[in-house]
């Protein structure tokens, strides 16, 4: 049992992975190093062929003018940054960027808040608490197509459950997926539901690391639940919170499936994010346009990496402390 818990401590997946560098000696490459290299060779080859090469192809796509014919023959014209310029100049760009910001920020803010509330709730264990907490993982484990199509049907304008509940309470039905005013809200709701388990699990693990005697001391001092939460839980959980939010951000930025399955980014681009836009240009229409799609994709990588580095710095600082 103890063996699968590399990070039962907290969320720093790499605590064991990057031990502090020892004193740097520079011996000649030892036999062990050659052996080590041998064992790592499949991974290195894999990263080269299946990560570096596709990424390189992607950059290549973004600086050429690829159409379907050039795709097969490989003789596309070099156009430099023209694709990027087109992307920035496109009227969709501003819409997609705005939607991405709203989708990401609202999703992670609500996921985090609900996840934290649930983590605090589950902290003091009670009968069935472990089983119920495990049940909360279900949305996270289901294939996205399953969750997304279930939400689609629940949000169906005429026959969806949500609208029939609204009508039962005297309200009007809402065209969740087919109205430009609501499509973004609809996909955000589904995405929040998908992300709560992740936040709950991570924050719960973080809470377990706060020593119980601190809480005991606080309660001896007469601190109520609100006070305890504000003065103990939140501050001590800060590093874990930062990591949860950053990871949430990175993963939410790249979401395609949920949105594509529910609304395909529509109607009228009202739920298009950068990732969905890229997907649609390349694969979503009958006429694939790989070059701008690759440009948008590379833009997305840059954004993700900025936050990724932030995340790594946080984690390193946490590991050092």
């Amino acid at each position: 049992m103890t063996t699968t818990q590399p990070t039962a401590s907290a969320l720093s997946p790499l605590r064991g992975a990057a031990p502090p560098p020892g004193p740097r000696r520079r011996p000649r490459v030892s036999a062990t190093q050659w052996t080590a290299l041998g064992f790592a060779a499949p991974l290195l080859a894999y990263l080269g062929f299946f990560y570096a090469y596709p990424l390189w192809r992607n950059i290549d796509l973004s600086v050429h003018d690829y159409n379907v014919r050039a795709f097969v023959q490989g003789d596309a014209d070099f156009v430099g940054f023209a694709n990027y310029a087109d992307v920035f100049a496109s009227p969709i760009f501003v819409t997609a960027l705005t939607n991405t910001v709203i989708f990401t920020l609202v999703s992670i803010a609500v996921q985090y808040t609900v996840g934290l509330a649930l983590a605090v709730f589950f902290r003091g264990s009670f009968r069935l608490s472990n089983t119920l907490r495990a049940m909360f993982l279900v949305p996270w484990l289901l294939p996205l197509i399953v969750s997304a199509s279930t939400w689609s049907w629940m949000m169906n304008s005429d026959n969806g459950l949500i609208n029939s509940v609204l009508r039962a309470f005297g309200g009007d039905g809402i065209n969740w997926l087919t109205s430009p005013d609501y499509s973004l809200t609809a996909v955000i709701i589904a995405n929040i539901w998908l992300g709560i388990p992740f936040n709950l699990v991570i924050l719960y693990a973080g809470l377990q690391n706060i020593p119980g005697d601190i809480y005991e001391a606080a309660s001896l001092d007469g601190a109520g639940p609100a006070r305890t939460f504000a003065s103990i839980t939140l501050p001590l959980l800060r590093p874990v919170s930062a990591i949860t939010l950053l990871l949430g951000l990175i993963y939410t930025l790249k979401v395609v499936d949920v949105i594509w399955i529910m609304t395909t980014g529509g109607p009228a681009n009202s739920s298009v994010t950068l990732a969905v836009w890229s997907y649609r240009e390349a694969f979503g229409t009958g006429r694939p346009d790989f070059s701008p799609a690759a440009a948008v994709g590379n833009l997305l990588i840059v954004i993700a990496l900025v936050f990724g580095f932030l995340h790594l710095r946080f984690q390193r600082r946490q590991d050092e402390s």
């Binding site: 596709p54 796509l61 890229s278 790989f290 990588i301």
Partner: peptide, 19 residues
């Protein structure tokens, strides 16, 4: 490897498609 996890799948999909 950490950075690799941050790359959006849609980007990988395009690269793989081209290959």
């Amino acid at each position: 490897l950490l950075v690799a996890q941050m790359i959006p799948a849609v980007v990988m999909a395009m690269g793989f498609y081209a290959i």
